[in-house]
């Protein structure tokens, strides 16, 4: 009987896929099946159906390469895990419908079929969701690395003067990275003054201030001076309201003012030259 079921699924694959696509198109908030080009929908659906039927014979196992390829693809397409789950549900509904229509399944053997199909679909669902979450985790960790790469670099601007623009929220992990980049940069660029620009830091709380103070202290130990620039009015307000003491450091409201001060510290200034 299982053989009969497998044969009829294989023979009617095109119909199953068509029905399945129709059902998926009816899902609320679904974009993929409406906006993607027809051939891509067709191809993806066929791959999904192949994956779904890959373990239909009890002797064949789920092809893990195919599974990983497919999940990587749907994560890229932006299928949510809920939607993936729905896709699996719909697929088994369509199969039920087909078996019923063909008269293979009837009231007398319904129970048996439910069991067979559950035993077929359940491990499949587990594997797909597993692969999906693994793929998702991989994506998140890649993004984390990408975030770290954009973290902070020290830019030499003039002889003896470098600038580090800080963008985004600073947590402990990032603060450590910033400190290392800052110090390595100061030593390799032989900077005497570094400007930490916090224009792009949305919130300066006690912890962030603490990290900045530590970084400035460490810069002093390696033999340079650290200046904090880009202090917006609301940041100045929070710093004072929180009672954070930044008296030991030079601070300026803008990078421009900071740069002038840094030039003055290294006995230089910018002069305008008259044009002829």
């Amino acid at each position: 009987m299982n053989k009969l079921m497998v044969d009829s699924i294989n023979q009617n694959m095109d119909e199953i896929i068509e029905c399945w696509i129709a059902q998926m198109k009816e899902e609320k908030g679904e974009r993929f099946f409406h906006f993607m080009p027809e051939h891509l929908v067709e191809k993806t659906s066929r791959e999904f159906a192949e994956l779904m039927t890959s373990n239909i014979m009890e002797t064949t196992a789920i092809d893990s390469d195919k599974l990983n390829d497919f999940t990587e693809k749907i994560v890229r397409f932006g299928w949510s895990i809920k939607f993936v789950n729905k896709a699996i549900d719909n697929f088994s509904f369509v199969v039920f419908g087909l078996l019923e229509k063909k008269g293979i399944m009837n009231d007398s053997n319904l129970r048996q079929f439910v069991e067979t199909i559950t035993r077929w679909i359940s491990p499949l669902r587990e594997s797909i969701i597993d692969a999906y979450s693994a793929e998702w985790e991989r994506t998140v960790s890649l993004q984390k690395i990408a975030l770290q790469e954009l973290s902070a670099s020290l830019i030499p601007v003039f002889d003896k003067i470098s600038v580090m623009p800080l963008v985004g929220t600073i947590d402990t992990e990032r603060a450590k990275l910033i400190m290392e980049n800052l110090l390595e940069g100061v030593v390799s660029q032989r900077a005497e003054v570094v400007l930490l620009d916090i224009t792009g830091v949305p919130v300066v709380d006690t912890m962030v201030a603490h990290h900045i103070i530590q970084a400035a202290d460490a810069v002093r130990l390696v033999g340079a001076k650290c200046m904090l620039v880009g202090i917006r009015p609301e940041i100045a307000q929070t710093i004072v309201a929180l009672g954070i003491n930044l008296h030991d450091f030079t601070t300026k409201s803008t990078l421009q003012k900071g740069m002038q001060a840094a030039l003055a510290m290294t006995n230089r200034e910018i002069v305008e030259v008259d044009g002829e």
């Binding site: 400190m179 290392e180 460490a218 130990l221 033999g223």
Partner: peptide, 10 residues
């Protein structure tokens, strides 16, 4: 003072 040394001291 090396960067690593400065960081550990702080």
């Amino acid at each position: 003072i090396q960067p690593a040394v400065a960081i550990t001291l702080i």
